[in-house]
Nucleic acid binder design. Structure first.
Lengths: 222, 222
DNA sequence: TCGAGGCCAGTTGTGCACAACTCTGCGCAA
DNA sequence: TTGCGCAGAGTTGTGCACAACTGGCCTCGA
């Protein structure tokens, strides 16, 4: 993260950037569920005082990624199975809305982004990396989110996505899921999505993604 | 608001309560869109310092109800038509999910609550009050939200509801909508919902509400 | 008369010290 | 030995003073 640029921005942008940074660390399991974060240490690392940092942590707490307890500490939350299932059921519905509600014409720029992501997916097949997989899936998610112009839908989908994104990585790390196989599946899925996008069939995109979410969840159960 | 009880609760509960209180003031137009709130005055009113109050304001800002600008002030946001339309389109979809996703059996307690609300609605027909209408609609919304056990869906629906709830009140205040007529319509709608609930037809509840939301938005356009 | 520049009151943002609270570990008594 | 209590370190929560910033007013010069 580019700490030097933190000085030139406005306060709100700093909060957004720090929020994104810490959120990514949680989702990439740099901070494991249950582990404790130190407000003092984080403030020192980012070169700010606890006050503005606490605003970032409060937001992450509202989003369900952190939990602060007075006198104890700030812990990274864990996600239990019931909660995970609820999120996935809701995401399966929202992904359909993302192509039905206030749809945006598919731009060449978006197609190019998805093609680039497909290439990354194919690259991962020969050199699997769980972290890179996570980043790639995140980028794909954010790219496809631009298919809708509905701002509240975008915001909610994003919150939900990051709420449970780390579970997949946890399962891979614990060898409950086979990374190699996931990479193969993902490359095929990305190709499917790109194909539907190129045909301009947004409805198909939605249902393809819905199926992928459902299957991904099914594989995680094991 | 019961300020005396603020002392005995934990910090988190205080934040939740203050958040709810200020949110209601915004939604009931005690704080008009565009008006400025003073952090100092609010802190004094609630008998706390600016620090914990600012956490509440930050949350309201994340929810889109406030907007703080450094050196200028904290303003109540206004809702433009495009945003309103987006929220309503999304709410029309979510209201269907509220009865389809993780449905909860209809309890007698819930039926009793809805019956009580129906009585309030009928009472308002003879003595219309925009503020009471708002509170009643909010209570109905929160009651029906218990039809689903899906926590993320509840949270998001709630955020969306309070995001634009004040628009209706604004339109009534500006006489763009006829309060008397709205009260009549609402009593009928509440009866419809109660009827479907008593029959245990959750799918019907969802679609009835969807229609109501759509019609309510249509009346607001004028 | 008009315009530019700066001063001032008022606001949000930040840093820091302390209060409130929890948990661990040690000592002491039964 | 075991249980209780207490003290201390460490953490989040709060209050307060000041920094950073904005917008309007006022002054001064052309």
């Amino acid at each position: 993260m580019d700490d030097a640029a933190l000085d030139t921005m406005t306060a709100r942008d700093r909060v957004d950037l720090l929020h994104q940074e810490i959120r990514d660390r949680i989702c990439l399991l740099d901070y494991l569920p249950g582990s404790r974060l130190s407000e003092t240490e984080l403030a020192q690392e980012f070169g700010i005082s606890r006050t503005p940092l606490r605003r970032v942590l409060a937001r992450l707490e509202d989003e369900g990624l952190l939990r602060s307890v007075h006198g104890v500490g700030t812990m990274v939350t864990d996600v239990d199975y019931a909660e995970l299932a609820q999120v996935y059921r809701l995401r399966k519905e929202l992904v359909l809305l993302q192509t039905r509600l206030d749809p945006v014409p598919v731009s060449d720029a978006l197609l190019a982004r998805v093609r680039a992501i497909l290439q990354r997916a194919e690259g991962l097949e020969s050199a699997p990396s769980a972290r890179e997989f996570m980043r790639m899936d995140r980028d794909m998610f954010l790219a496809l989110l631009e298919l809708t112009d509905n701002a509240p839908l975008r915001q909610m989908s994003e919150r939900l996505y990051f709420r449970t994104a780390r579970i997949w990585l946890q399962q891979v790390t614990a060898s409950h899921i086979d990374l190699m196989q996931e990479c193969r599946i993902y490359a095929r899925e990305a190709a499917e999505i790109l194909n539907a996008l190129e045909l301009g069939d947004l409805d198909a995109v939605g249902h393809i993604r819905r199926a992928h979410i459902s299957l991904s969840f099914a594989r995680m159960k094991g």
